[in-house]
Amino acid sequence: MPSTVLSFRADEEMVSKLDQLAEATERDRQYHLKRALSRYLEAELWHLQAIAEGVSDADAGHLTDLEFVKEKWVKRAENSPD
C-alpha cells in the first residue's frame, strides 16, 4: 500500500518522551507514531459509529424511558456497599 508523508509540530517535551520510548523499545519514532495514530483512529471511529447507531435507534423509536433509567440507578445506589 502506498504511503503518504504527514508532518506536524510537537512540543519539545512530547518529542523527548517519544525519543525515550523509542530508545527503550529499540523502535523508531515512526513505529510509535503510527501505532498511536492507529489506536486513536480506531477508538474515535468506534465512538462515531456508536453515536450513529444510537441516533438511528432513536430515530426508529427505540428509546428507554428516563424514569426507568433513574429508578434503576437509584436502586443500584441504594444497594451499593459505600
Rank of each mutant, 00 (worst) to 15 (best):
W46I: 03
K70Q: 12
L41M: 11
K17V: 08
S3G: 12
P81Y: 02
L6N: 13
F8L: 10
S80V: 06
G61M: 03
A58I: 09
L63E: 14
A22W: 00
S3V: 08
R9Y: 09
A22I: 00
H32Y: 02
E53V: 05
S7A: 14
S7G: 11
Y31N: 01
Y40V: 06
V5P: 04
H32D: 00
L6V: 08
D65M: 06
G54I: 09
V69G: 05
K72P: 01
R76S: 08
Q30V: 04
L21Y: 00
A50S: 14
E42K: 08
E12K: 09
D28C: 07
E12A: 13
I51V: 13
R9S: 09
S16G: 08
K17L: 10
G54R: 15
R76F: 07
D82Q: 08
E53P: 01
F68P: 03
S56Y: 05
H32C: 01
E26N: 11
Q30S: 15
S16I: 07
D59E: 14
A58E: 11
D11W: 08
V55K: 02
Q20A: 14
R29Y: 01
I51K: 04
R29L: 00
E12P: 05
T4G: 03
Q49F: 06
L33F: 00
H47T: 04
K17F: 10
R27Y: 02
A43Y: 09
R29H: 11
L6G: 07
K72A: 04
E12L: 03
T64V: 15
S80M: 07
R35T: 03
I51W: 02
W73K: 12
M14H: 05
S38A: 15
A77P: 06
A24T: 05
H47P: 00
E13V: 06
E53T: 09
A58K: 14
A60E: 14
T25Q: 13
W46Q: 10
R27I: 01
I51Y: 01
V15P: 01
E42W: 05
H47K: 13
E53F: 05
S80A: 06
Q20D: 15
N79Y: 03
A10Q: 12
R35G: 01
H47E: 13
A58Q: 08
H47S: 13
F68Y: 04
A43P: 02
L37C: 10
L63P: 07
N79M: 11
P81C: 02
A10I: 08
S56D: 15
T25P: 01
P81T: 02
G54S: 12
A24F: 06
D82I: 10
A36L: 03
E12N: 12
V74N: 10
A77N: 08
G54D: 09
